[in-house]
Write a protein that binds this DNA or RNA. Sequence first.
DNA 1: GATGCTATTGAGTGTCCGACCAATAAGCAA
DNA 2: TTGCTTATTGGTCGGACACTCAATAGCATC
Lengths: 214, 214
Amino acid sequence: MSSSVPRKRIRKSPAQRRAEIVESAASVALNEGLEGITLRRIGEQLDVRPGLISHYFPAVEELVAEAFSSAATGELDTLLPIAGEQDPDSPVRRLSRFFADATGDSYHAVSKLWINARHLSRYRPVLRERVAAQEAAWRERLAGLIQEGVARGEFRTGDPYVSAIRIIVVIDGLAAHANTGNASHPPAVSRMAITTAETELGLREGELDPPADD
Amino acid sequence: MSSSVPRKRIRKSPAQRRAEIVESAASVALNEGLEGITLRRIGEQLDVRPGLISHYFPAVEELVAEAFSSAATGELDTLLPIAGEQDPDSPVRRLSRFFADATGDSYHAVSKLWINARHLSRYRPVLRERVAAQEAAWRERLAGLIQEGVARGEFRTGDPYVSAIRIIVVIDGLAAHANTGNASHPPAVSRMAITTAETELGLREGELDPPADD
DNA sequence: GATGCTATTGAGTGTCCGACCAATAAGCAA
DNA sequence: TTGCTTATTGGTCGGACACTCAATAGCATC
């Protein structure tokens, strides 16, 4: 007779509840994978009945897509923030910071998420569109940074857009092993993204390396 | 009362039946994805009860791993066959053929399979090991080809192994979009694998392009 | 303090999955 | 032909899943 008492209900505004649900789903997506997003799982995490999740997302696929978008957008804004008007950092510095962050631990989770989403896209059209949109967003953001660098005379490239895609291809290729893990590539390989960027943008070797603290 | 008649049983040798099962699973993996490998699905395809699949593979995960290995090995032997003693083709030609084939349609299915397997590896240790083994096999095979090319004076590279990995990284990066599909990259991007190989191996530009039939 | 809207619950439906196991029959060997 | 080994069946079990919907109860408004 433990819990024959009816649960206490907490009633929230649709907007707030919906945001909660997406946030919860995004965290599950990052930590356990997109297929971990189930009505039960999210309901449990928010201490709410599964039916409520269905109420906000009549089809789970929508929630999955939304969760991915949320997580991916968050990471993009962290790694490649839009340059503020008074952003003191030069494109070179921002790009260098990007590569430094892109080896961190939270980035590893995001790599897994991308692999996850790209695979699941095979069966889920709604997710597929969101993935395509995110890919475009990353390309645009990086291309924009490159363009700015070109304008300031820091970078030299024939086509900023092509350079952006080339760099992203290498990043994706390196990230492919995020789940198999044992990679431990030689530096000549793990530095490949930076090397590609330096070559692509006409920079000196090592110019994009993280600042050594000596 | 359609099928109250007991099924006719066809009794095969364990080795033969097992091979059948793996082959069937590999085909399902290529066409529908690794999660399409279920006891019921394979049983149906072989016109056999699901329990029989369980008999040969007490844990489905083993079958999934085996199916992936089988499909991946098959593709590797097709794309990068081991050089026969009297194989007339030079390393340059074999590599060129590889890149030509690696844009075909069946290759697309294999790309999807790799994405599939790399993601599923996240949850399935047995599969993860097989994926790692296959990755190693591809690296070795390509490195071997490069080494032979170096020995014959066709290629120039500091480290054949590193060159092999670098090329594979680009291939993986390009293949990442196999499911999102809409890619339609500019040639400067879609040719990136070939360009990388040419740069990496000290070849002239275009030397690895497929022979034009003019 | 009463009323009404609606966010939330509870309970149920149907599907698909892997795993398990005793009973059965195919086909080889004697 | 008879027997025996064992490949194969048929049925069952428990669990997880998405989705549906009438009933319920927060809570803002009056």
